[in-house]
Design a binder for these strands. Structure first.
Lengths: 368, 368
DNA sequence: TTGTACGCGTTATCAG
DNA sequence: CTGATAACGCGTACAA
């Protein structure tokens, strides 16, 4: 297959290399190599490498022309450097693994956040591996995950469910790789959203709309509790306090507090909130689920949203656009979270220092 | 290099290398290599490789003991084979890239589906790369994405937004890599959910509950339309027809059909549906958004869900569990989709044949 | 069973 | 600026 001369050297040509090119081209399974291009161009692999990497000045026109020819041949042959070879030579992979540890569907992370990590890496020619380690399998010494059986990346960006945090942090930190933590609040090596600030943003939005009797609704949290559960409530409280407004319009946050009869389903909690504090004008919700439940519960007892009850929530993305639901939303700054995580892990890799102070990423806006 | 006696051979030992091992240990940046282990164990790298890969029978006790020692040293030194070296030797990467093409937040794919792809790959020691190519940047010959600038994977699993499908398929297929398509209905190389079947499942659930006046609600689709928009409606229609029930309780699906005044926001469409067909007992919804909007719209006009209006939806995961919202849900079979996609791409890679018939993956159940 | 030697594809070095 | 050569880490023929 394929032998027609794409373009022969202007001067002398030796037919032999052509044949070897042909035979190589027969089994199209193997990608074009530097040597293929070199043979084809009648130069050495080293030269091709230099030209393709722009390490030549190409002052003289003859040189420039030859280089041009090499580039064209490389393109026509579809040459692409082999990442494995480059990695070996470099002694590093230029790759980072994103790791998530939920169990079977229990896991959550928006693709947009992955995109932000990827685009930040892409900008500097790094690659992103995706990895899921079921928490249930960690610790079993016999079931070493692929990720730790071979060296394949230079660093880790890890997203844990709060339930597992305590046990798993140590496991990862003991690996010979720098770790950056998402979704975890620590003093070092962590990147997390400033949820207090996000809640303040949302509550202030409601205050500016003229409301004073503002409530707070969240699902019932089990222990250990995710920091966002505490921080969003803290943000609600501080924003209210700053405006001299009362903060009692909410149910117990944690399942081990309060009376034994408190409702556990978010839908029931929403109803309960409205019944217990019927004069509530507006509610700040922990997440989309709360907002939806509250909306339904409100309409069910004749409160119209947003006419007689305003709801603000937190979510990964805008809610209203196509649906038309009236839920202004504080957007979790996933894009910035990803950027910071990548910056931090690369800093760890470059410096060899893992003790980089954590970053709390501020929320930016409330999307209406 | 390296000699500090973690464990010395029972016989001779030479102290000099200790220093060099320490110095190696100082800059913890370089991972342990096969040669490090070999030096340490006083054997050749080849032997270590064979022992670690179980290529020796280890019949004789002396051999077995030595092998054990080698394994222990490897473990103590934290030896992990370098994936780049293996890839080079093998002439393949044992890696697949997941590619997604939305633009800035416009993108969608549940992490659980990524998990299914990953776990299937993990089982056979393959790795998963994550890659996002903003559709807006594709086609710009000057902005070649990282993924195509170097060879780094053996195959692609691609998730496209319907808007871009037409233009981009060709671009990917022209790459020297096998492609499997998700979220795209073609005769070859594609893996997609059987949405007609999913809708039938949902509608039959409502029929079995004794309902006869069953409607269908979806958002208003722009062109080109995702196959699920057509297939779910087709499934609704066929399930109804099979039960001799009327299928007129729905609004126009596409934005270029019907009158110019039809509502575009899903919330408005939900209200419109209820007003236009007030005798509707139950509704099958295209997705979660429709279900939520319909719920709110229904409660707003005094219809209680599920008491006087039953709603069934389609979603990536169960809705009811913690929220308490009464929306039985046909679960998109993402787990099976991932499995099939991995199987297909590996089949393509192994056989070199890209023309593998597509697979329509059935829905399994309606979760209450 | 062991050690030796080679090659995978690429880049850096060094002499021409 | 070029070509030859060495080196990255690993696995595997080959000879011992």
């Amino acid at each position: 297959v394929s032998n027609e001369s794409l373009e022969m050297p202007t001067g002398s040509q030796d037919p032999t290399p052509v044949l070897s090119y042909v035979s190589k081209s027969m089994n199209r399974s193997q990608p074009t190599t530097l040597e293929d291009v070199a043979t084809r161009a009648g130069v050495s692999p080293g030269t091709v490498s230099r030209v393709l990497n722009g390490k030549n000045k190409e002052n003289r026109p003859a040189i420039a022309k030859r280089s041009e020819r090499i580039r064209r041949i490389a393109m026509q042959l579809g040459y692409r450097p082999n990442v494995a070879a480059r990695s070996m030579l470099r002694g590093a992979f230029r790759a980072v693994a994103f790791v998530t540890c939920g169990d079977l569907g229990n896991d959550w992370y928006p693709i947009s956040a992955l995109n932000s990590i990827h685009s930040k890496l892409e900008a500097s020619q790094w690659r992103l591996m995706f990895n899921e380690l079921p928490a249930s399998k960690i610790g079993d010494a016999k079931l070493v995950p692929n990720l730790f059986r071979e060296t394949s990346v230079d660093g880790l960006i890890i997203n844990l469910l709060p339930v597992f945090s305590e046990d798993l942090v140590e496991y990862f930190e003991s690996q010979p790789l720098p770790c950056v933590w998402l979704n975890l609040k620590r003093s070092f090596g962590s990147v997390y959203p400033d949820d207090a600030n996000g809640a303040e943003l949302g509550v202030n939005y409601l205050i500016k709309r003229g409301h004073k009797r503002i409530g707070y609704l969240s699902r019932l949290f089990a222990s250990p509790t995710h920091f966002s559960a505490l921080d969003r409530f803290a943000g609600y409280s501080s924003a209210m306090a700053a405006a001299n407004l009362p903060t009692h319009r909410h149910l117990p946050l944690l399942s081990n507090r309060g009376d034994a009869l408190q409702p556990t389903l978010t839908m029931d909690r929403a109803r309960e909130l409205l019944l217990r504090f019927p004069d509530t004008e507006a509610v700040f919700c922990y997440e989309y689920e709360e907002a939806v439940c509250l909306m339904v519960a409100a309409e069910r007892i004749g409160r119209r949203v947003p006419d007689t009850l305003e709801i603000v929530g937190v979510h990964e993305r805008e809610i209203r656009a196509s649906s038309g639901l009236s839920i202004p939303t504080a957007i979790i700054p996933f894009y910035d979270l990803g950027s910071h995580a990548v910056e931090m892990v690369r800093q760890m890799i470059d410096s060899g220092n893992r003790n980089i102070p954590s970053v709390a990423v501020p929320y930016k806006s409330v999307l209406i």
